[in-house]
Design a protein around this nucleic acid. Structure first.
Lengths: 108, 108
DNA sequence: GACCTTGTTTGCTATTTTGCCAAATAGCCA
DNA sequence: TGGCTATTTGGCAAAATAGCAAACAAGGTC
Protein backbone atom coordinates (compact mmCIF):
# COMPACT_ATOMS: atom_id res chain seq x y z
CA UNK A 1 0.00 0.00 0.00
CA UNK A 2 2.79 2.38 0.88
CA UNK A 3 6.46 2.47 0.08
CA UNK A 4 7.94 -0.73 1.47
CA UNK A 5 10.01 -0.33 4.60
CA UNK A 6 13.16 -1.60 3.00
CA UNK A 7 12.82 0.71 0.01
CA UNK A 8 11.97 3.65 2.26
CA UNK A 9 15.01 2.94 4.39
CA UNK A 10 17.25 3.14 1.35
CA UNK A 11 15.86 6.51 0.34
CA UNK A 12 16.03 7.72 3.93
CA UNK A 13 19.77 7.11 3.96
CA UNK A 14 20.17 9.02 0.74
CA UNK A 15 17.94 11.83 1.92
CA UNK A 16 20.07 12.26 5.01
CA UNK A 17 23.08 13.02 2.85
CA UNK A 18 21.17 15.31 0.52
CA UNK A 19 19.63 17.19 3.43
CA UNK A 20 23.05 17.81 4.84
CA UNK A 21 23.94 19.55 1.58
CA UNK A 22 20.67 21.40 1.28
CA UNK A 23 21.78 24.78 2.54
CA UNK A 24 23.53 27.68 0.83
CA UNK A 25 26.18 27.99 3.51
CA UNK A 26 26.87 24.29 3.72
CA UNK A 27 27.26 24.03 -0.04
CA UNK A 28 29.74 26.86 0.13
CA UNK A 29 31.64 25.17 2.94
CA UNK A 30 31.86 21.88 1.08
CA UNK A 31 33.17 23.67 -1.98
CA UNK A 32 35.70 25.50 0.13
CA UNK A 33 36.87 22.34 1.85
CA UNK A 34 37.49 20.90 -1.58
CA UNK A 35 40.46 23.24 -1.70
CA UNK A 36 41.84 21.83 1.51
CA UNK A 37 41.29 21.64 5.26
CA UNK A 38 39.93 24.77 6.91
CA UNK A 39 39.43 25.64 10.54
CA UNK A 40 36.13 26.88 11.89
CA UNK A 41 37.29 30.43 12.27
CA UNK A 42 38.52 30.63 8.67
CA UNK A 43 35.17 29.41 7.44
CA UNK A 44 33.36 31.76 9.79
CA UNK A 45 35.31 34.67 8.40
CA UNK A 46 34.38 33.70 4.84
CA UNK A 47 30.74 32.98 5.54
CA UNK A 48 30.07 35.92 7.81
CA UNK A 49 27.67 34.19 10.17
CA UNK A 50 28.10 33.73 13.87
CA UNK A 51 30.76 31.14 14.69
CA UNK A 52 28.21 29.06 16.57
CA UNK A 53 26.11 28.90 13.43
CA UNK A 54 29.05 27.80 11.33
CA UNK A 55 30.01 25.22 13.91
CA UNK A 56 26.48 23.89 13.78
CA UNK A 57 26.58 23.67 9.98
CA UNK A 58 29.81 21.73 10.23
CA UNK A 59 28.28 19.32 12.69
CA UNK A 60 25.46 18.68 10.25
CA UNK A 61 27.97 17.87 7.53
CA UNK A 62 29.98 15.72 9.91
CA UNK A 63 26.89 13.89 11.07
CA UNK A 64 26.08 13.01 7.49
CA UNK A 65 29.58 11.66 7.03
CA UNK A 66 30.59 14.31 4.53
CA UNK A 67 33.45 15.82 6.51
CA UNK A 68 35.70 14.94 9.42
CA UNK A 69 37.53 17.10 11.90
CA UNK A 70 40.98 17.14 13.45
CA UNK A 71 42.05 19.16 16.39
CA UNK A 72 45.21 21.19 16.06
CA UNK A 73 45.99 23.16 19.15
CA UNK A 74 42.92 25.13 19.97
CA UNK A 75 41.67 25.04 16.40
CA UNK A 76 39.58 22.41 14.71
CA UNK A 77 40.24 21.73 11.06
CA UNK A 78 37.58 20.22 8.87
CA UNK A 79 38.23 18.25 5.70
CA UNK A 80 36.15 16.60 3.02
CA UNK A 81 35.66 12.97 3.71
CA UNK A 82 35.43 12.02 0.10
CA UNK A 83 36.02 14.08 -2.96
CA UNK A 84 33.21 12.30 -4.76
CA UNK A 85 30.95 14.90 -3.19
CA UNK A 86 32.32 17.29 -5.71
CA UNK A 87 30.64 15.37 -8.50
CA UNK A 88 27.50 16.78 -6.96
CA UNK A 89 28.49 20.20 -8.09
CA UNK A 90 28.94 19.19 -11.69
CA UNK A 91 25.56 17.47 -11.59
CA UNK A 92 24.07 20.61 -10.12
CA UNK A 93 25.65 22.83 -12.70
CA UNK A 94 24.31 20.67 -15.52
CA UNK A 95 20.81 20.88 -14.16
CA UNK A 96 21.05 24.60 -13.60
CA UNK A 97 22.49 25.25 -17.02
CA UNK A 98 19.77 23.25 -18.71
CA UNK A 99 17.08 25.07 -16.76
CA UNK A 100 18.59 28.41 -17.67
CA UNK A 101 18.60 27.47 -21.32
CA UNK A 102 14.99 26.38 -21.09
CA UNK A 103 14.07 29.64 -19.40
CA UNK A 104 15.74 31.61 -22.17
CA UNK A 105 13.87 29.51 -24.69
CA UNK A 106 10.51 30.29 -23.08
CA UNK A 107 11.30 33.97 -22.88
CA UNK A 108 11.56 34.23 -26.64
CA UNK B 1 32.75 40.75 5.91
CA UNK B 2 30.31 38.14 4.78
CA UNK B 3 29.94 35.96 1.74
CA UNK B 4 29.81 38.24 -1.26
CA UNK B 5 26.41 38.72 -2.81
CA UNK B 6 27.41 37.29 -6.12
CA UNK B 7 28.97 34.22 -4.57
CA UNK B 8 26.01 33.76 -2.27
CA UNK B 9 23.64 34.00 -5.22
CA UNK B 10 25.48 31.20 -6.98
CA UNK B 11 25.18 28.90 -3.98
CA UNK B 12 21.56 29.90 -3.48
CA UNK B 13 20.73 28.64 -6.94
CA UNK B 14 22.46 25.37 -6.24
CA UNK B 15 20.84 25.06 -2.84
CA UNK B 16 17.43 25.44 -4.41
CA UNK B 17 18.02 22.35 -6.52
CA UNK B 18 19.50 20.36 -3.66
CA UNK B 19 16.66 21.32 -1.35
CA UNK B 20 14.17 20.08 -3.88
CA UNK B 21 15.86 16.69 -3.70
CA UNK B 22 16.21 16.72 0.07
CA UNK B 23 13.30 14.50 0.93
CA UNK B 24 12.87 10.75 1.03
CA UNK B 25 9.70 10.77 -1.03
CA UNK B 26 11.04 13.19 -3.62
CA UNK B 27 14.19 11.14 -4.08
CA UNK B 28 12.01 8.12 -4.63
CA UNK B 29 9.88 9.97 -7.13
CA UNK B 30 12.89 11.18 -9.11
CA UNK B 31 14.26 7.66 -9.23
CA UNK B 32 10.91 6.35 -10.37
CA UNK B 33 10.57 8.99 -13.07
CA UNK B 34 13.94 7.85 -14.36
CA UNK B 35 12.10 4.78 -15.60
CA UNK B 36 9.63 6.88 -17.53
CA UNK B 37 6.72 9.30 -17.19
CA UNK B 38 4.31 8.58 -14.34
CA UNK B 39 1.00 10.16 -13.47
CA UNK B 40 0.27 11.54 -10.03
CA UNK B 41 -2.02 8.70 -9.04
CA UNK B 42 0.56 6.07 -9.97
CA UNK B 43 3.14 7.81 -7.82
CA UNK B 44 0.61 8.26 -5.03
CA UNK B 45 -0.13 4.56 -5.07
CA UNK B 46 3.57 3.74 -4.81
CA UNK B 47 4.39 6.28 -2.15
CA UNK B 48 1.33 5.73 0.00
CA UNK B 49 0.85 9.33 1.07
CA UNK B 50 -2.16 11.49 0.48
CA UNK B 51 -2.46 12.55 -3.14
CA UNK B 52 -2.34 16.20 -2.10
CA UNK B 53 1.00 15.55 -0.45
CA UNK B 54 2.40 13.85 -3.53
CA UNK B 55 1.10 16.62 -5.72
CA UNK B 56 2.91 19.10 -3.55
CA UNK B 57 6.16 17.15 -3.72
CA UNK B 58 5.86 17.17 -7.48
CA UNK B 59 5.35 20.90 -7.51
CA UNK B 60 8.52 21.32 -5.49
CA UNK B 61 10.45 19.26 -8.02
CA UNK B 62 8.84 21.16 -10.88
CA UNK B 63 9.62 24.48 -9.29
CA UNK B 64 13.28 23.51 -9.07
CA UNK B 65 13.24 22.64 -12.76
CA UNK B 66 13.82 18.94 -12.16
CA UNK B 67 10.62 17.67 -13.74
CA UNK B 68 7.91 18.84 -16.09
CA UNK B 69 4.28 17.81 -16.45
CA UNK B 70 1.94 17.07 -19.30
CA UNK B 71 -1.80 16.71 -19.10
CA UNK B 72 -3.36 13.68 -20.70
CA UNK B 73 -7.08 13.60 -20.27
CA UNK B 74 -7.76 13.96 -16.59
CA UNK B 75 -4.34 12.68 -15.65
CA UNK B 76 -1.10 14.62 -15.30
CA UNK B 77 2.10 12.86 -16.24
CA UNK B 78 5.41 13.96 -14.83
CA UNK B 79 8.78 13.33 -16.43
CA UNK B 80 12.40 14.00 -15.59
CA UNK B 81 13.62 17.15 -17.13
CA UNK B 82 17.18 15.98 -17.46
CA UNK B 83 18.64 12.60 -16.83
CA UNK B 84 21.77 14.14 -15.41
CA UNK B 85 19.94 14.21 -12.11
CA UNK B 86 20.56 10.51 -11.96
CA UNK B 87 24.28 11.14 -11.58
CA UNK B 88 23.24 12.39 -8.17
CA UNK B 89 22.35 8.92 -7.14
CA UNK B 90 25.71 7.48 -8.05
CA UNK B 91 27.40 10.29 -6.13
CA UNK B 92 25.15 9.56 -3.18
CA UNK B 93 25.84 5.87 -3.29
CA UNK B 94 29.59 6.48 -3.34
CA UNK B 95 29.37 8.66 -0.27
CA UNK B 96 27.11 6.22 1.52
CA UNK B 97 29.29 3.25 0.67
CA UNK B 98 32.41 5.00 1.90
CA UNK B 99 30.71 5.99 5.12
CA UNK B 100 29.51 2.46 5.68
CA UNK B 101 33.01 1.14 5.16
CA UNK B 102 34.35 3.68 7.63
CA UNK B 103 31.72 2.70 10.16
CA UNK B 104 32.68 -0.93 9.82
CA UNK B 105 36.30 0.04 10.28
CA UNK B 106 35.55 1.88 13.50
CA UNK B 107 33.47 -0.98 14.82
CA UNK B 108 36.45 -3.30 14.73
C1' DG C 1 -26.49 19.17 -16.82
C1' DA C 2 -25.34 15.83 -13.02
C1' DC C 3 -21.66 13.13 -11.70
C1' DC C 4 -17.15 10.77 -11.63
C1' DT C 5 -12.17 10.77 -11.54
C1' DT C 6 -7.75 13.06 -11.27
C1' DG C 7 -5.09 16.87 -9.52
C1' DT C 8 -4.17 21.28 -7.40
C1' DT C 9 -4.75 24.66 -3.85
C1' DT C 10 -5.91 26.30 0.74
C1' DG C 11 -6.23 26.19 5.76
C1' DC C 12 -4.33 24.49 9.64
C1' DT C 13 -1.32 22.10 12.91
C1' DA C 14 2.86 19.73 13.99
C1' DT C 15 7.62 19.30 13.24
C1' DT C 16 12.08 20.66 11.75
C1' DT C 17 15.50 23.90 10.63
C1' DT C 18 17.87 28.32 11.33
C1' DG C 19 20.64 31.35 13.74
C1' DC C 20 21.70 34.29 17.48
C1' DC C 21 23.21 34.78 22.25
C1' DA C 22 25.05 33.14 26.31
C1' DA C 23 27.15 29.48 28.91
C1' DA C 24 30.27 25.65 28.93
C1' DT C 25 34.58 23.30 27.31
C1' DA C 26 39.34 22.72 25.79
C1' DG C 27 44.05 23.94 24.70
C1' DC C 28 47.80 27.50 25.35
C1' DC C 29 50.67 30.52 27.57
C1' DA C 30 52.21 33.60 31.07
C1' DT D 1 46.22 29.26 38.42
C1' DG D 2 44.23 32.95 35.57
C1' DG D 3 43.28 34.57 31.30
C1' DC D 4 42.84 34.23 26.37
C1' DT D 5 41.36 32.06 22.06
C1' DA D 6 38.77 28.66 19.45
C1' DT D 7 34.88 25.82 19.38
C1' DT D 8 30.78 23.43 20.90
C1' DT D 9 26.38 23.19 23.12
C1' DG D 10 21.88 24.67 25.24
C1' DG D 11 18.04 27.69 25.02
C1' DC D 12 14.97 30.04 22.49
C1' DA D 13 12.21 32.51 18.95
C1' DA D 14 11.43 32.96 14.01
C1' DA D 15 10.96 30.85 9.63
C1' DA D 16 10.41 27.05 6.62
C1' DT D 17 8.51 22.27 5.75
C1' DA D 18 5.45 18.46 5.92
C1' DG D 19 1.11 16.37 5.46
C1' DC D 20 -3.80 15.79 6.08
C1' DA D 21 -8.47 17.07 4.94
C1' DA D 22 -11.63 19.86 2.68
C1' DA D 23 -12.63 23.01 -1.09
C1' DC D 24 -11.91 23.87 -5.79
C1' DA D 25 -10.86 23.02 -10.90
C1' DA D 26 -10.81 20.43 -15.21
C1' DG D 27 -11.77 16.43 -18.23
C1' DG D 28 -14.67 12.61 -19.23
C1' DT D 29 -19.06 10.03 -19.37
C1' DC D 30 -23.85 9.27 -19.23
Amino acid sequence: MAMKKKVKARYDVRAKVVKAMAHTTRLFIVDELAKGPRCVCELTEMVGDDISTVSRHLSVLKNAGLVFDEKQGTSVFYSLHCRCILDFFSCLESVIKINAKEQAELAK
